[in-house]
Design a protein around this nucleic acid. Sequence first.
DNA 1: GTCTATATTGTGATAGAC
DNA 2: GTCTATCACAATATAGAC
Lengths: 200, 200
Amino acid sequence: MTTEENIINAAKEVFVRKGFQGAKMQEIANEAGINKALLHYYFRSKEKLFEQIFSGAFQQLIPALSKKLDEITDIESFIRFFVPFYVDFIQKNPHLPQFVLHELSQNPDRIRSLAANQGFPLSKLSVMIDRAVAEKKIRPIETHSLVINILGLIIFPIIARPMIEGVIFNQNTKSYQNFMAKRSDEVVETILNSIKPQSN
Amino acid sequence: MTTEENIINAAKEVFVRKGFQGAKMQEIANEAGINKALLHYYFRSKEKLFEQIFSGAFQQLIPALSKKLDEITDIESFIRFFVPFYVDFIQKNPHLPQFVLHELSQNPDRIRSLAANQGFPLSKLSVMIDRAVAEKKIRPIETHSLVINILGLIIFPIIARPMIEGVIFNQNTKSYQNFMAKRSDEVVETILNSIKPQSN
DNA sequence: GTCTATATTGTGATAGAC
DNA sequence: GTCTATCACAATATAGAC
């Protein structure tokens, strides 16, 4: 592993855990097993180092799905594929959403510096939804509403873990973990039920 | 307004917007129209001032509902009451959730310093749900799942506003506002549909 | 109670030896 | 490329006059 990769890894660890303001160059240096001066040698400033990490993290958070979507043609299949895929990814990177959303809320303009709309194929989803609605397989719903509902149901319990564990599960970590173990199936079921066609 | 109240208001404004690490005592002093020394005169340290603000903000985020719940006896009525009530509150305090969740993720132990489980009447909800399930008005669902689903659907679009506005709505603020204007009805509908009894 | 001035420490960044 | 030493300034906190 090169020194540069080493720094990137250390910086990712610290920035994601502490945020831009909370992260200290000294801590990143310690994490990487080097000294502060070397950080500035490779990346001129804290801001520049941060941008490296942040842009990568952001792109991760909104996964590129275009290839997989060529194989999927109906909306229910997409939901059954995407939800477990995304739940799994988020559970492996539980601090990523809070990090990205916090930094964006601190400085929304950061999103302009990133290639927007890269990754999430809204138009393909719209086609699937329109067809399913026409065939009366689902009730009408706007594409962005469905996407936001799915992301919210997945991401919120991760971001709000301390609150949920404390207030809902009375500091019982096992209860929270048990809840999260079933979360993927639960989100799929919740979403599919919410778009089922009217029964009358 | 006393000086102490003045400081509290200024500190709330700055802490909620910038977080603990991002907030500076100078900025709070400016916001309050006084000088830094007075902050330390009234509250010994930044940490002590922050705790005042945070505990209040946290209690706000989980609203006390016990009184209102005495009048409501079935789960659908609760959903139709609570969702618009909470959406309205959050839209008036859009930075509050991000603030509380971010600070809790930075320091989960902060939740121990607060009186836990104060406000959200899970047990009353469980009774309503059990009865509705027994009467086959809704499909079986765990109380905490329903609560987390509702909170997630409401809070996520607020917390993720910069991302949603940027990636989903292509930087079009009007589109986002239009989406949020219908959000309360949409969440009610989504939740109610998701718990409808099986139709077969 | 409120202010100005100052102490003290923390932190990003640079200089220069090796 | 990597280090030690140091600078420059920001930020929390305190001293002391009024």
